[in-house]
Nucleic acid binder design. Structure first.
Lengths: 226, 226
DNA sequence: TGTACATCAGTGAACGCGCGTTCACTGATGTAC
DNA sequence: TGTACATCAGTGAACGCGCGTTCACTGATGTAC
């Protein structure tokens, strides 16, 4: 099938100025003594950029990452024990970013139903804005070595907070009486929101629109509300 | 409801027991003159089985397929021009199977709301019973060469029929007045059902249950019904 | 102050692997005369 | 009836590729005395 991962690496960045050629691999200058973490950051950024452009963690190879940074492949192994860990660390940044963007979206929202909608919308927007990380985070094969979802979900704020949000709705009698378990309602709500998000990513050619998204989220909640 | 469409020929019978030897590759006897299509079928079956066990079309290699059939890799090219076509033909069987199992499920159901629920349930069951093909069909990267979803959706019966089903609900005043476009309602319903199905596949460790699925589907429809 | 030395941030070459695909071929099977 | 020949279903070897990872090393940088 020859899954050539595309020439990759956005040639658009202007701060590396002269180069942007794929071949020559402009060798960077060596770091000073205590500054090994600088390369670590550069590796993460390069891997992230490759993940964004290819949208496939398989297409992010240690060799391409090294070339993008301007370093030889073994140099990566001073900072990451293996490729799985590298991919996971890139994804982990996005888990944090998802947490953050939902947190930010709900600031100042007091009505619990409205808060639910805002959470859903922020989640969908995150997926639309970061389709390739979203794919790694939520659409990977469960056996994939870089899928650390289960480790994440246990300590993530957004699931705990969404569940708390739903508990408030249940306690104040906003939902139909058959919806009593906040965790299960949360799981169902997440599945619905994920359905839209992942389908927008997998099938971008379908006629998605802002209005469609808003109505979708609205009726997800209407379906369980009194 | 096991919707496994093609027998998937379990060559792994009981006598090879705990360890399936990878090495020996029992060479099959050559086909007679007009029987080239027999090998074609065996290749498809072997590729299907590999897709089912690995759950990853990248992991289905021409070499592994050839070995499973007991043939050398070039022999495959007499029946399939390339790997992409082979993977697609395997998936195509499942698109047909999905059509078939939904058709079968709705036989005898006359109430349009109940029919919608039955469609949803049959779809979820199909995904649960065929997670790896489902992944290839609906969760692949849109740029993946084997993703022929767009070719399929245009000619698939199930989307046309689901949309017709929804049109009946709209025409007979079963839905809230803001839901008027059967195509958009169909898209939203599909997104919700897909959300559950794909999450069950990606995150099988979460506490999914039959009761949960039924309530999920029920409230998908309640959300838009009067 | 100079110098020996430890440390650190990498390099260069290689390992063995599996991949999709091509190419020239072979030998059994069927067919025409 | 026998025999020459076309066809067909494959084989065997090789192509060039990119992959993750290991290993012994090098040369600049900082530090202790």
């Amino acid at each position: 099938m020859t899954t050539r991962p595309v020439p990759a690496v956005s040639t658009g960045s202007e701060d590396d100025g002269p180069s942007a050629e794929p071949e020559p691999s402009p060798r960077r200058s060596r770091n000073r003594r205590g500054e090994g973490t600088r390369l670590r950051e550069e590796i993460l950024t390069a891997a992230e950029e490759l993940l964004l452009t290819t949208g496939d963690s398989d297409a992010v190879s240690m060799r391409l990452v090294a070339e993008a940074v301007g370093v030889t492949p073994p140099a990566i192994y001073q900072h990451f024990p293996d490729k799985t860990t590298l991919i996971w660390e890139v994804s982990a940044r996005y888990f944090a970013a998802l947490d953050h963007s939902i947190d930010k979206a709900v600031v100042g929202v007091s009505d619990p139903i409205e808060e639910l909608e805002v959470r859903g919308r922020a989640y969908v927007d995150f997926g639309r804005d970061n389709p390739e990380p979203y794919r790694v985070m939520f659409m990977m094969h469960p056996h994939a070595p870089a899928d650390r979802f289960n480790e994440w979900v246990l300590q993530s704020r957004i699931f705990r907070e969404a569940t708390a949000n739903l508990q408030v709705c249940i306690d104040t009698g906003l939902f139909l009486p058959e919806y009593t378990d906040a965790f299960l309602v949360s799981l169902a709500y997440w599945a619905r929101i994920h359905g839209l998000t992942s389908l927008m990513i997998s099938k971008p050619a379908l006629p998605w629109s802002d209005q469609f998204i808003d109505q979708y989220i609205h009726s997800c909640i209407h379906g369980i509300a009194r």
